[in-house]
Design a protein around this nucleic acid. Sequence first.
DNA 1: GGGCTTGTTACTGT
DNA 2: TACAGTAACAAGCC
Length: 243
Amino acid sequence: MPEGPSLLLLKEDIDALHLIGKKVLRIDGTNKIEADRLIGQQLKAVKTYGKNFLLCFKDFTLRVHLMMFGTYLINAEKSTKLQLSLQFEDAKINFYTTSLKIIEEDPDDLFDWSSDIMSDQWNAAAALKKLKAQPDAIIADLLLDQQIFTGSGNIIKNEALFRAGIHPLSKVASIPDKKLKELIKAVRDFSFDFLNWRRDKVLKRHLEVYEQKNKKHPHIIKEYLGKGKRGTYIWPEKQHLYV
DNA sequence: GGGCTTGTTACTGT
DNA sequence: TACAGTAACAAGCC
């Protein structure tokens, strides 16, 4: 569920319920959120920031992060531990396996939407500047850096690197500006393809390297690399290593 | 059924 | 003390 594009689909599902202006009638689940603060509150806005889903109320915002395995169901339940249920007049939203937090600050003050890969305010030039500020990093790590590419995850990392023809272990300082710009554009473009493909439930068949070892092409290899030792797929003939 | 996985944080040790 | 590396957590797919 969790990369940026999937959060937009979550927002689409919630928007379809027309809950703005509606009150929270009841909350349930194993969360440690203060129920008293939420009950009776009118939903003011629903936003996403990268992988964060934001339910905005008058004086605070509930931040829902779906982590690796987070899921949600609308007007439906499943057997795994219910973490947070928000009952509105005509609809109930159930969240499972999430990280929840009440944010006191105004989200517009707290979050910089120009780094959000899905946002209208996305600023490619700012991303380039942030990449170049870490010349010794390997590019694969920076594609997961939420300060630079807010909302990017491991699938986007792999596919964007493939599209730009850059090997994941390339050192940032060694990659020509032209290629960095190409990569930044690939992140943005792939993320919207991801959004549309996932909406149509056809994402997997369009992936070119991610989980494609021994599938799309026999030369694709898999390595665990970078800070988080995340699974990384490489088609060596097509991805140049800049060192 | 063991080994993966779209993620992040809190520890640990150096 | 700062940083890098590891463990922990979760549910579902194959």
